[in-house]
Design a protein around this nucleic acid. Sequence first.
DNA 1: CAAGATGATTCGAA
DNA 2: TTCGAATCATCTTG
Length: 459
Amino acid sequence: MDEQARIMQALGGVSLAGHSVQGGMALPPPHGHDGTDGDGRKQDIGDILHQIMTITDQSLDEAQAKKHGLNCHRMKPALFSVLCEIKEKTGLSIRGAQEEDPPDPQLMRLDNMLLAEGVSGPEKGGGSAAAAAAAAAAGSPADNSIEHSDYRAKLSQIRQIYHTELEKYEQACNEFTTHVMNLLREQSRTRPISPKEIERMVSIIHRKFSSIQMQLKQSTCEAVMILRSRFLDARRKRRNFSKQATEILNEYFYSHLSNPYPSEEAKEELAKKCSITVSQVSNWFGNKRIRYKKNIGKFQEEANLYAAKTAVTAAHAVAAAVQNSQTNSPTTPNSGFQMKDEEFQLDSAENKNTLLTNMFTGSSGSFNLPNSGDMFMSMQNLNGDSYQGAHVGANVQSQVDTLRHVISQTAGYNDALGGNPMYSPHGLNGNGGWHDATTPSSVISPTEGPGSVHSDTSN
DNA sequence: CAAGATGATTCGAA
DNA sequence: TTCGAATCATCTTG
């Protein structure tokens, strides 16, 4: 039903009897009547309402004149309040349904996300956490910093656009609200518009604008997500590590071949040396272990290379030590190697004694090989080694091997073990895995019972 | 351009 | 959580 008609009807019903309408409002006696003439009053009110209803059909000048006349009508305030009240009553149900809607979960999600991404919230450091998190898994630090700053720049761009737009929306919202409020206040002089209604209208406007804001937030979120995914996708765009980094990693790997599991500290150290992240070090070792194990033969040359490299370094120390010992104890035979432990540049001090012991007793870390790499094992076995004794720490073990070889060449050391110059892929067990490698590479057990001797016979 | 090398990711197991 | 294994995607090399 038409609202105006309804109001008319309601108003007519209320005022016809001449009783006070709901709310205790009493109509003053109409002009020109004695107050007892119900029909006359009805007529009067009807006239007024009719004039109001038809005011839109009149020309502007006519309407203005009529409007002024109505405004000055002494019944106007009473009529106005009655109309307001009725309108209020009819609007209650609508308002009740619309008001106090719970905070939109989607809006909250968007807000949270924008806050987390640093788009909303405090300016300083905005997004750096997200960028750092994204960068953590990305390439080398050098690349990181480039991509990181790129990411940050793009994010701050998004942030700036977001804030500009938000401000614009807020400004527009305020302007529009003010405009509507003024308009309604102005119109409230001729139309039954209560302050409550104005309030309601304002809230409607705010709701509309907040839905626009939500769209802005949504598209901002999308932009951030796209940026983020692009940034993270850059991880796949890998770049090979520098030659130096690969060398450092390989050196560590081959010098810890029997236990190529760097500790957290070692990883950090390597990461620092190689200018890569710890997780990259872990990745590298993970890949290296699996690929080495898969095809030991292929890596043999590389192993020899790094063994020789390590050995050269060690040999210098040994040679110096030999010279030193000879100088200090001229009576000591060459094979004696009565050098000071300190002469060895080994990974840890506690390894040195074991290294010396192993060097000259021929004991070494027990290892089994997968069938694919058995040639080294066979060679060792043919050499008649028992491989009993110390479960040598990986670094020591490899140094022993390399030193044995180097010493045999540089210091006239006659390798009783056959002087196998090849870098042995020891440490791999029969199942194709490195034997109990739980011991940190720098920690060794100087002695080990016979029960711990690994055997190839199972293979 | 194809093949191999290599860094990163994913997934299941311990 | 870490590791092995498989796999992907890109880079390098011939």
